[in-house]
């Protein structure tokens, strides 16, 4: 230590100077929930089951996502598409139930990567919200499937 360092005061004054400079600096805080921070386009947020251009569900219940899931959070049951349901399901097989356990899910994106039909996506604009009850985190098809696009608006 040099003599001036031994005296405590210069270093303390320097530190105080730095903190005072920050006192008048622009603040870095983002006022969540009023403002939200920009997330990247590939952010892995809440799952969505996509529909194709015609509004039919893309998922064919092949089960790859469930296999790929390291947390074993996805379960589904497959069903055969009946005639007259072509506008609902794109392929002959579809998922009758499709559940993601959001508490188990680690949002690693392997399901999205595994899906050969581009059906499941982790969307960047939604995050899984906090809730009070455990049961509310089993996301069924009612909450996962993308809402139907109406013709006039998106």
């Amino acid at each position: 230590m040099t003599f001036s360092e031994r005296m405590y005061l210069p270093a303390i004054a320097q530190g105080l100077g730095i903190t005072l400079k920050h006192f008048f600096k622009k603040k870095a805080t983002i006022n969540y929930p009023e403002e939200t921070r920009q997330r990247s386009d590939i952010w892995r947020g809440l799952h969505v089951l996509k529909r194709d251009e015609n509004g039919a569900e893309r998922c064919t219940a092949c089960g790859l996502c469930a296999v790929a899931c390291p947390a074993e959070a996805i379960t589904m049951t497959a069903g055969e598409r009946k005639t007259g349901e072509e506008h609902l399901y794109r392929e002959e097989k579809y998922a009758v139930t499709y559940e993601v356990n959001m508490l188990r899910c680690i949002f690693c994106g392997l399901c999205e990567e595994a899906c050969p039909k581009a059906a499941i996506f982790l969307q960047d604009d939604k995050i899984a919200p906090a809730r009070y009850e455990r049961d509310e985190f089993i996301y069924g098809k009612d909450r996962l499937v993308e809402p139907l696009k109406t013709t006039e608006t998106k």
């Binding site: 870095a28 590939i42 952010w43």
Partner: peptide
């Protein structure tokens, strides 16, 4: 604050902040 910027980069590369996969 600077680590947040590193996380921004991670996020842009892989889509997550901490457990990047």
């Amino acid at each position: 604050q600077e680590r947040e910027h590193i996380y921004d980069i991670y996020e842009e590369v892989c889509g997550a902040r901490l457990t990047t996969n």
